[in-house]
């Protein structure tokens, strides 16, 4: 066990740094710039049962200290991800990977998870009940504790792999959703997905995004994510993966002190594609400065303060 290593649902990670789904493709764009095997693991692009072209353009808008996206779960569908993307991914990444799963019905979530369950490359299933950019699916399952629990149970029943439920911050009580997922058999939680937002073009007086609304990410959301991780991690016994605006080794440590057992890095990958490598390199020195021996020992270090 190294100083940086942590465990996620019984699977060891060399370090807690995980690129977030939707910001890392299937890894190969980044493998051009650095050896992505330095990562703890990564969560690949959200996958649905059938292929989805995604939303009309523009899908991206800049904000103060962040960005809005409304990509809308563009992906080739689970069968092509398994037949085309996973073999290519295996060439550049040799650790278990997180399969991120989305759906428009409980049955779809379960079916996609069932198909990924047979893939030895997949270490964990991350079930996205929090996408704000699709209609009649995604987030609508993550804003109601009962619906989130129903998805969790259906997925839990079809896989032996650890199930991570990815939660939405667009709720009044994220602890209630988190507890419902835990009670329904989730092995871990990841939070937060993006916060729903919008921008309007002053000249055209129309929303900048074709989808009108989109999900806010980037450093602007870090304090919101941190607060939710702090609340949820004290209310559940399963591990919490913290994400939302992380862009430095200091942010990783702060998120782990809030209660995260591992972290994901999202929007920062899009601005500096080497962010995750740079964070991993910076962690030992930052830990020395803060007199932290191992990352494992600081998880939840702020609780009760």
């Amino acid at each position: 066990m190294g100083r940086l290593s942590v465990s996620l649902c019984g699977i060891g990670l060399d370090n807690p740094v995980i690129p977030a789904s939707g910001t890392f493709g299937y890894g190969y764009e980044f493998a051009e710039l650095y050896d992505i095997n330095c990562l703890g693991t990564f969560s690949f692009k959200g996958t649905t049962l059938h292929s989805r072209p995604g939303n009309p353009l523009p899908r991206i808008a800049e904000t103060a200290s962040g960005m809005l996206n409304a990509v809308g779960l563009q992906n080739p569908g689970v069968d092509r991800v398994i037949s085309e993307e996973l073999p290519k991914l295996a060439e550049c990444f040799h650790k278990p990977v997180i399969a991120n799963v989305s759906g428009f019905s409980v049955e779809e979530y379960a079916e996609v998870c069932r198909r990924f369950d047979a893939q030895p490359q997949v270490g964990w299933l991350e079930v996205n009940v929090s996408c704000p950019n699709v209609h009649d699916g995604g987030m609508s399952f993550g804003t109601e504790p009962k619906a989130a629990a129903e998805v969790t149970r259906a997925v839990r029943a079809v896989t032996s792999k650890p199930v991570i439920m990815k939660l939405s911050p667009n709720v009044t009580d994220i602890v209630a959703v988190a507890k419902a997922c835990e009670d329904a058999g989730a092995d871990a939680l990841s939070l937060i997905n993006t916060l729903m937002g919008m921008r309007i073009d002053l000249r055209t007086r129309r929303p900048v995004l074709a989808n009108r609304t989109g999900g806010l990410s980037g450093p602007a959301v870090f304090p919101v994510a941190l607060r939710m991780v702090w609340q949820v991690s004290q209310a559940v016994r399963i591990p919490v993966i913290g994400l939302g605006g992380i862009q430095s080794a200091e942010d990783v440590i702060e998120m782990m002190l809030a209660g995260a057992s591992a972290v994901q890095v999202g929007a920062a990958n899009l601005v500096n594609p080497c962010t995750c490598r740079d964070i991993i390199r910076a962690l030992p020195g930052t830990m020395d400065r803060l007199q932290i021996n191992t990352l494992q020992e600081i998880i939840g270090g702020s609780h009760g303060q």
Binding site: G25, E29, P53, L57, R59, A61, N69
Partner: peptide, 15 residues
């Protein structure tokens, strides 16, 4: 097109 990353990761500019 409006782009997020510019190198193929975010799917922000897909046509």
């Amino acid at each position: 097109q409006r782009m997020g990353c510019g190198f193929g990761a975010c799917m922000g500019c897909t046509v």
